[in-house]
Design a binder for these strands. Structure first.
Lengths: 195, 195
DNA sequence: TCAGGGTCTGACCGATCGGTCAGGCATGCT
DNA sequence: AGCATGCCTGACCGATCGGTCAGACCCTGA
């Protein structure tokens, strides 16, 4: 036994992650987290400035990976952007499915908080890339449904190992995105948007 | 002017629908709804027994349609079940996108309430049908992502007319579901589950 | 004119929320 | 021994939540 040091900070973080995935961010009180750790609510607030700071520290790795994907997507367009966006987001969703599940349905309110300032813009760009930067409604709808569906559903795949979940989601994403029409021999007419 | 009768009941219902779609069920207080209507919180609770009853009356038509779809799905299997489930759920999502958006992320807690007792089982059967009643992980994952994605995203399509949204979602659903392998001339081997 | 029922309201309730604060209690350094 | 520091706690705070209640305000019919 090298160390019996309690590491309360980490325990609180882990307990919060567990509770948030079950009852959501707003549905979990600091009292709940403290009870799960076995300490007082004041102790939770001793280790974290406030509830939002707890969430921010919990989401930091996922957000960093999302930011990295956004940079990769910077110069890409069309089918290349679709492929990178799909593979990158599937990777992110599989690895951080627990963290993403925390945001279940509370995204709109949460990303108003300063800690998640640019997430909305990043996910907008991610959706555009997945749609092949097309403005056809079908492409945008498919991209939005796919992103929302993977985000929403990945939390329920806790029993499926990563090496099985990842290819299944990726195959689904490749089927689901509306193929971009650039490689067609004859360029599309202007009526395409209304079809 | 045949009637200047206020119809406060209906106004409260409409205001609640508006607020719920923006800030969610738990994120909307009775005070918020009362403020939007222009009456007191006590008036809201005069017309509705409690907050849950308000939600139940708001969701009733959507739930009834979902129940009807469940009955249709009763005797179907394979590709037929997939097609009916996809078309039926897309119809439901398009028509009741506002109501479905209310449940954003609060599904797990809400369907514990007695008013939504059997919704969980119905949506489970809907997912099974969409997966062609296959137990392949890929099929179940695709069905779950599709249902969650449409539910989650449809609330953001307020600006897209029904006649445009419906075929786009239906085409996406048909692309996204993993095809059931019954009609194949050569029956699949047992390794298919692991591919 | 008055009684009665439907509609609405302000005041209030207990519970719970996130967050603050003074102080207790070890431990280790001087 | 005395002191400082880090960790933790119970008690408390104001705000807000869903919900209750007695009574005011109409309108209508006898």
């Amino acid at each position: 036994m090298v160390r019996a040091v309690p590491d309360t900070h980490g325990e609180i973080l882990a307990a919060a992650a567990r509770r948030f995935t079950v009852t959501g961010y707003r549905g979990t009180s600091l009292q709940d987290i403290a009870r799960e750790v076995g300490c007082s609510k004041a102790t939770v607030l001793y280790h974290f400035a406030n509830k939002e700071a707890l969430l921010a520290e919990l989401m930091a790795p996922a957000i960093e990976m999302l930011r990295g994907l956004d940079e990769q997507l910077g110069g890409l367009t069309g089918a290349a952007a679709q492929e990178v966006a799909a593979a990158g987001f599937v990777d992110l969703a599989v690895r951080f499915r627990r963290e993403i599940a925390v945001l279940r349905g509370e995204f709109p309110e949460l990303l108003c908080q300063p800690a998640f300032a640019h997430i909305q813009q990043i996910s907008d760009r991610l959706r555009d890339a997945l749609a092949g930067h097309s403005d056809r409604p079908g492409a945008r709808i498919a991209a939005l449904v796919l992103l929302a569906g993977i985000s929403e559903a990945c939390g329920e795949f806790a029993d499926i190992p990563d090496e099985e979940l990842r290819p299944a989601l990726l195959a689904l994403a490749r089927r689901a995105v509306e193929p971009v029409d650039v490689p067609l021999p004859h360029p599309p007419t202007t009526e395409d948007k209304d079809s």
